[in-house]
């Protein structure tokens, strides 16, 4: 069985993080469409990876431009909400 890092109390949806703040992926959850979590993993949103919201579209702060590793993806808010993250600082990887 896969043992992703268990989401801690500090984990928040990526969609709720401040633009520019470096985060670490804590877990992926099925918050929207079932295959989203799997898809996000394939794109590189993997537990332990560094992510950061680079830009938010207007109006309404959607979509989000998200940096993961060396790649950038545009995600809708509901998609980014499937990625639970913790602040990069203070997290030992």
């Amino acid at each position: 069985m896969n043992a992703p890092m268990s989401p801690t109390l500090a984990a928040v949806p990526l969609s709720d993080t401040a633009t520019g703040a470096p985060m670490i992926v804590a877990a992926l959850i099925d918050a929207g469409v079932p295959e989203w979590a799997q898809r996000l993993r394939e794109l590189g949103f993997i537990e332990g990876e560094t992510v950061r919201v680079v830009r938010r579209g207007q109006p309404g702060g959607e979509p989000l431009a998200v940096r993961v590793g060396v790649s950038t993806f545009a995600l809708r808010r509901a998609e980014a909400a499937c990625v639970l993250v913790m602040p990069a600082a203070g997290d030992s990887m």
């Binding site: 469409v33 989203w36 950038t72 545009a74 998609e79």
Partner: peptide, 12 residues
């Protein structure tokens, strides 16, 4: 019926 559209688009 399937509602939520997927974006997940790479910005190369």
């Amino acid at each position: 019926r399937d509602r939520l559209q997927t974006l997940m688009m790479e910005l190369p």
